[in-house]
């Protein structure tokens, strides 16, 4: 059992939980994820890791309430426990000195970007961060990411903060000004696709973090398979980060909708 030791409501449907999981906290590296199950009848869901504290033995997760499990997770409070919390899973981000890196985070994808920004900065890179959200109140970890960024930009769809428009507009301006050596993009599939299409024109190495549906998270079921350069890879063990220029985003979008009807039914029945 894994107790929840801290809870923050970041926006109406984005919550942050700090979970006591000492073995995971000791091992976690930027870019990795965990799989949790709330209770005996729960589904196993993957969530990327926003932060960790090996001395306290805690792991921070930030999630958007989209389906039955995340909505139920959002109702839990400090003192409640999770039945299972396994990890850290997946391959860590390739953190090294690239030179100038641009870290692009969209929506709840900003959360897993944070440890990567931190690590890339500590590895000696010139870090430019661009955070995007629908509106200013949905931006996450602004201060935290700003603190580790040499340059820092915001884009909102409604213009309530920063540039009015998409993160890719800001990225275009940066590419026009700087020689960019690597782009790391985590966010909605459409954002990662647009960013990858842009950087491909300039031949800039681009990594994206994919979040397909998973079951076991250990390479056993293949439910999380993604098509990378025409080859089938498992996001749980080969990823979750892949070359953004080689991802088949259409297939990923399609596979993430596999259980959309069942998810709706489950939410209705559970009244969440």
């Amino acid at each position: 059992m894994y107790p929840i030791v801290e809870k923050k409501i970041l926006s109406e449907n984005v919550k942050q939980l700090v979970v006591k999981a000492p073995l995971v906290a000791k091992k976690v590296k930027p870019g990795q994820f965990i799989i949790l199950r709330i209770d005996e009848k729960g589904e196993r869901i993957p969530l990327t890791i926003a932060d960790s504290d090996p001395t306290q033995g805690t792991v921070t997760i930030i999630f958007l309430e989209v389906g039955k499990t995340t909505k139920q997770l959002g109702t839990l409070n400090v003192g409640d426990t999770l039945e299972n919390f396994a990890g850290p899973l997946g391959m860590p981000s390739e953190v090294k000195k690239y030179g100038t890196v641009v870290c692009v985070g969209g929506g709840v994808g900003i959360a897993p970007l944070y440890p990567i920004v931190k690590a890339l900065k500590e590895a000696g890179n010139f870090v430019i961060s661009i955070l995007g959200a629908k509106s200013a109140d949905l931006l996450l970890l602004e201060k935290e990411i700003h603190a580790f960024s040499d340059e820092f930009y915001i884009a909102t769809d409604d213009g309530s903060k920063g540039h009015k428009g998409f993160v890719s507009d800001v990225l275009q301006q940066i590419i026009d000004k700087h020689k960019v050596d690597m782009v790391m993009a985590i966010g909605p599939i459409i954002m990662m696709k647009v960013v990858s299409n842009l950087t491909k024109k300039y031949n800039i190495k681009t990594l994206v973090s994919l979040n397909p549906i998973m079951v076991d998270g250990t390479g056993m079921c293949g439910g999380c398979r993604v098509s990378i350069d025409g080859k089938t890879k498992f996001a749980c063990v080969d990823g979750p980060e892949f070359d953004g220029h080689k991802v088949d985003y259409e297939n990923l979008t399609l596979r993430n909708r596999r259980f959309i009807h069942a998810e709706g039914d489950a939410c209705k029945l559970a009244g969440v």
Binding site: K41, C221, F259
Partner: peptide
């Protein structure tokens, strides 16, 4: 990779271990 193609492992894990045959009593579909 079309929607509707499963590995035997995914299908059986959903049904056996996650008890998808009892969905929605159990959460895994």
């Amino acid at each position: 990779n079309l929607d509707g193609v499963y590995s035997a492992n995914e299908f059986l894990t959903r049904v056996n271990m996650m008890k998808a045959y009892k969905f929605p009593e159990y959460d895994t579909p």
